[in-house]
Amino acid sequence: MHTVSIVGEDASVLLERLVGRLSARGSLATITKRSSVSSQASPDDITRIEDSGDITELPAQPAPGHENAIHYTAAGADVAYGHAAEGWSGYGTTDRSIEELIDDLAGKYDYCLLEGHTGGAVETIAVGEMDTDTPLLEIDDPETCALEPILEQIDDTTPHVTLETLVNDVQTVSAESQAGAIATFTGRVRAKEHPDDTPTEYLSFEMYEKVASDRLDTIREELEAREGVHAVRFHHRTGVIERGEEIVYVVVLAGHRREAFRTVEDGIDRLKAEVPIFKKEVTTDETFWVHDQADQQ
């Protein structure tokens, strides 16, 4: 899922134009970050928003027709969904980060546009006078700017991938009807090997991008050539990954469980042995490259 945040006073103008174009290219989700002013929106505001079609200032209310959601969440439900023939709505009270929302959407949508979100790993497009760190693009006039170059930039961003993205993707292959098994491997940052070890704070990964991607393609083709293995997918994150967070996924779609399990194991083993990725470990006491540590042991 290509994920980009539009920031700046007139972000909504550009966002609305982009929504029309992106939804023609693929499935699209939007996340609107409410400003502090509109958080005090009154019921009158709802009417105004319905009239104007303004999507930038959603008040803290569920979609019209799903007002019961408020009662259920007030009574203790963490999230309440409404469902009707014409659509559905979700209303949650729990403290969920934008990152968690993006993770949830990544398996289902091709694009995610955020409005007004800065920080984290999400790329931004700055509209008008906006002091943003290294935006992907800076747009002066959101009403008249050409959209094609922006769409190209969005397509060039590194997609946000979760385990669910890969699990959904393998099920789109044509041999899917002969597949009775999906096996997955998730590698995560282990804080300690033994209970009294110095805990790992984070790992930092560096990748020889082009060669890594070629190697992974080769491994994938070789594993997919096995009898009964229909699809194999890999994803390895780079940069800083904190303890408890996920690093790598391997997903296999196969006819039966045995070839699925075997291929997942061989896939992660070959990734670790053959793909040019380098891991630096930072514990509370020290920093070291993991291959150096392995030499010492």
């Binding site: 590698g187 990964f205 990748m207 020889y208 060669v211 890594a212 390895h236 690093i247 790598v248 992660i268 990734l271 670790k272 042995a273 053959e274 793909v275 040019p276 990725i277 380098f278 891991k279 490259w289 993991v290 291959h291 150096d292 392995a294």
Partner: peptide, 10 residues
């Protein structure tokens, strides 16, 4: 040309 130490991904 590229030079690197042993790989350590995953």
């Amino acid at each position: 040309l590229a030079l690197f130490p042993p790989v350590s991904g995953g």
